[in-house]
Amino acid sequence: MAEFHVTFHPGGPAAAAPSAKELEAEDPYELVGLTFEVPPDHDVDLLMARTFVEEYALMGYSRPALRKLFETPFYAGTHDILVRRGPAYVDSVLDEVFGAEVPGDEAGEASAGAAPADEGTSRG
């Protein structure tokens, strides 16, 4: 069994004498599941960041709107990537998808357009 203890502080602050209890079988906090070795060349951060960016970009989100997903701490998954890997890393992913940022293009409109809808769809 993994080395793991649950410490309780009944009715008071941490200064109160804690009682340590050994983990029991029905304790839901013990991780009893499987582990799976991640291949060494598997960059989870890059794959996750690209997933976030491309998923939303395909639905029409702009680059500034997506940048905010990384900046705002309430979006834990994206923000965690920015905190651990840095803003330059996030910008490089955004650059890959949207192209290098155009100075002054705050609204991310440089790549948007209104071309005629002359291309058909492909369902056979």
């Binding site: 491309e54 970009a57 395909l58 029409g60 702009s62 890959e96 998808v97 949207f98 192209g99 790549s111 948007a112 357009g113 209104a114 071309a115 005629p116 809808a117 002359d118 291309e119 058909g120 769809t121």
Partner: peptide, 9 residues
Amino acid sequence: PGPVAQTLN
């Protein structure tokens, strides 16, 4: 079919 929305990589 609708208009172009944006160009991406």
